[in-house]
Design a protein around this nucleic acid. Structure first.
Lengths: 248, 248
DNA sequence: TTCTCTGTGTTAGCTGGCGAACAGACCCGT
DNA sequence: ACGGGTCTGTTCGCCAGCTAACACAGAGAA
């Protein structure tokens, strides 16, 4: 246990990559404004066109940001886990959300007002720098998604997506329905079922109602597109975390 | 002619939306570092993995930013004309380019070292704010592209793209080959030819070697996807600029 | 238990765009 | 004015994934 921990700084803050990067002085100042929150699955952080009031440093669990079309179809453009800050776009001076961001896998985080974070970032250079770098990485994520959506098959994107989630939640059981996956991947539910069926019959994953169990991570990497590696390389983003592949 | 113009401030700087937004004091300071440059078609600003040394405020012409896959296929994720700043990602503290940015339609701009711009932005709050807002809009552009690539047909994306270019260069003759268009849209050259053929036979555009003439802008809007409107709504981005549709 | 709701499995036809290939047309240099 | 390079038009087979429809299986409520 760190002995230098102040009253407001909690050790769980170290779980977030941005907060972890801050020097103790800055973290202490920031910490007095942070409020720990439990984030339940499907919690909506922001919807297109609405104001972003709060920002959230995620410490566990995972969020998805999706672009929603007029007809209601949607495609994922970003994923944020404990490496990041939900609501980061508000740091760029426009507090309107462009996309829908929801909690994908339950977890925890720290919340504070977007406006407060913005003014703090002006005083705390390391905080500002850490957030800027996260925005940089997010831009890379968006770009990769755009290209991925254009070129890669559903099986490739699905595999990539499952591993992207795993990289963040560090667990092999993902609580997801096919319908939901379809919304993330911008594909039809039945097509997702089909693709999952192929993976299952190859022993790569295991399906059950509302849950997908990753069995063979190594093989899953092989069926996913290059985008997986590109995303893993983004500074601050989680890379492969399986210490020894789970069998084959 | 503005009588308050200082030695270093040139009136053509007003052509760039970011520079135009600056208060005279800030512009004057920034202007001493700006070097006017002519930007020829196909000029490469940055390639993936390389350092971004310079940033460019565009005053005329247009750039494209594309994501390039390992096999060489590419898809456009962003477009910058006189509304923006090429190399803006370097403002986020990482000077490595993630994508390829090239001059798409010849024009002019002002150049300065990325590092210099970054330090200036720390002293000039309006500059910083204007750049931040441009980054915000670019994020929106990237997101829209990702969804567009997933859902919309080539004809829709092509129509949207042609109008996006027109919005920026304010001219109806676009110097483009089908091959080039294919690289932007992540499609096959022959598929592009086919789609252009349909538009041409409907009298919406006119093809000639290396050039596409936009004839009926109103109809082109109809065949393009909703993304056109979304992009036009982004703060600081050019919207429809045809004062009275050209016939129909 | 039974009813209902949500989620999964599966089928069949249809289509947009890929992949590959070739002929013709335009443009420039010598 | 002729020859090679670049650009465009067109064709045809092929396949991933959409559209739509229906049957069945868990899971929770009454």
């Amino acid at each position: 246990m760190p002995e230098t921990e102040s009253l407001s700084v909690s050790s769980s803050m170290q779980s977030n990559a941005i907060l972890r990067e801050l020097p103790p002085g800055e973290l202490e100042i920031l910490a007095t404004h942070l409020k720990p929150v439990a984030l339940a699955i499907h919690y909506i952080f922001s919807e297109p066109g609405q104001e972003i009031r709060y920002c959230y440093f995620i410490t566990s669990g995972m969020t998805s940001t999706v672009a929603v079309m007029q007809d209601g179809s949607s495609a994922e453009i970003g994923v944020i886990g404990s490496e990041g800050l939900v609501g980061f776009t508000a740091m760029l001076g426009v507090s309107i959300s462009q996309n829908l961001t929801i909690m994908q896998v339950s977890g925890d985080g720290y919340r504070l007002e977007a406006e407060k974070l913005r003014s703090l970032a002006e005083e705390l250079p390391h905080l500002r720098r850490a957030i800027d770098r996260f925005i940089w990485s997010s831009l890379g994520f968006y770009a990769q998604c755009a290209a991925c959506n254009r070129f890669h098959t559903l099986e490739e994107r699905l595999s990539r997506w499952l591993l992207t989630v795993r990289d963040r939640i560090q667990a092999n059981g993902l609580p997801l329905t096919h319908e939901f996956l379809g919304q993330m991947l911008g594909a039809h539910r039945s097509t997702v079922t089909l693709a999952l069926g192929v993976l299952e019959s190859n022993g790569v994953i295991q399906n059950s109602r509302g849950k997908i169990e990753l069995i063979d991570l190594a093989r899953l990497e092989k069926t996913s597109c290059e985008c997986l590696q590109s995303i893993r390389k983004l500074p601050g983003f989680p890379a492969a975390a399986h210490n020894g592949h789970l069998s084959a």
